[in-house]
């Protein structure tokens, strides 16, 4: 069977299935992205910022809250897509046998996997949209340019959704996701210019940060929200596109190996 023939718009049916399930408990699903930024902004705004004061970023003094608000968007984009294509997809694949059922219909494995990643990206967009609303109410978003966060959330969601799906393809049991979470997601969360600027760090740490897909998403998010970034938007966009493409390919390959026997 030719590779191109394995992709068709039919994959949107799988995407829609996830949307139907999401809508059943949309109030719960909406709660987290609405409350999470509130908690962070309150904690950092009231508590932490008194300790750290203002932050120098891209040649400008910023309040600490203004500095981390766009980073919160980026980390939420990462977490939403990554958790969707790891834990949630794993449950559908392994425990619920949802993929087995789908693969007895005219859907191809590639379509199911692509739709799952697309859905992860969709959840990122929904979460980022809700968070953007909250952050905008704090007066921390320039509008309308800040709306660029939405397409960025899609791109970031594809990147982290694809890498999550790759881990789902190679992870034997659901408990083992602790490993990529601890070794991949947590370091990214902490060391991607999220809570402190990368510019002040030693060169080796800057290089490590530069390799992080989250760093590029944080940068692009700062650019959208505040109109300021310390690196190049084109390079960051290119990096995220490349990252998405590579891990999309790896994810499909890993899932094919895992499911088609």
């Amino acid at each position: 069977m030719s590779r191109a023939g394995r992709y068709s718009p039919r994959l949107l049916r799988v995407w829609r299935r996830n949307l139907v399930v999401y809508r059943r408990i949309w109030k719960v699903n909406f709660l987290v992205p609405l409350l999470e930024p509130l908690f962070y902004l309150l904690a950092f705004g009231i508590g932490f910022s008194r300790l750290v004061g203002d932050v120098m970023y891209a040649g400008q003094e910023l309040t600490y809250v203004a500095f981390i608000a766009p980073a919160l968007l980026a980390t939420a984009i990462m977490f939403n897509a990554f958790y969707e294509t790891t834990f949630a997809s794993f449950v559908r694949m392994y425990y619920q046998k949802t993929f087995d059922a789908m693969l007895s219909t005219p859907l191809s494995l590639e379509e199911v996997i692509t739709a799952e990643i697309l859905w992860g990206a969709t959840k990122s967009v929904l979460a980022a949209g809700l968070m953007l609303l909250v952050i905008a109410l704090f007066g921390l978003v320039r509008l309308p340019e800040g709306l660029w966060v939405l397409p960025l959330a899609f791109l970031g969601g594809m990147a982290f959704g694809a890498v999550g799906m790759y881990f789902t393809g190679i992870t034997p049991t659901i408990d083992m996701f602790n490993l990529p979470i601890f070794l991949f997601v947590t370091p990214l969360f902490l060391f991607s210019g999220t809570f402190f600027p990368v510019a002040g760090l030693p060169v080796w740490a800057q290089i490590v940060a530069w390799a992080s897909p989250l760093y590029h998403l944080v940068e692009l998010s700062r650019w959208a929200v505040m109109g300021r970034m310390e690196s190049s938007a084109l390079v960051s966009l290119g990096y995220l596109l490349l990252f998405s493409g590579v891990f999309f390919g790896l994810a499909v390959r890993a899932m094919r190996r895992r499911l088609i026997k």
Binding site: R13, R16, R17, V21, Q96, K97, A101, S104, T105
Partner: peptide, 24 residues
């Protein structure tokens, strides 16, 4: 299939309707 592969996130009717969607 041998195992139950019904979609536990959906109702009985949705199981049929969404499955019909996979067949377009």
């Amino acid at each position: 299939q041998q195992e139950n592969t019904l979609d536990p996130d959906l109702t009985v009717e949705q199981n049929l309707l969404l499955f019909a969607g996979y067949f377009s």
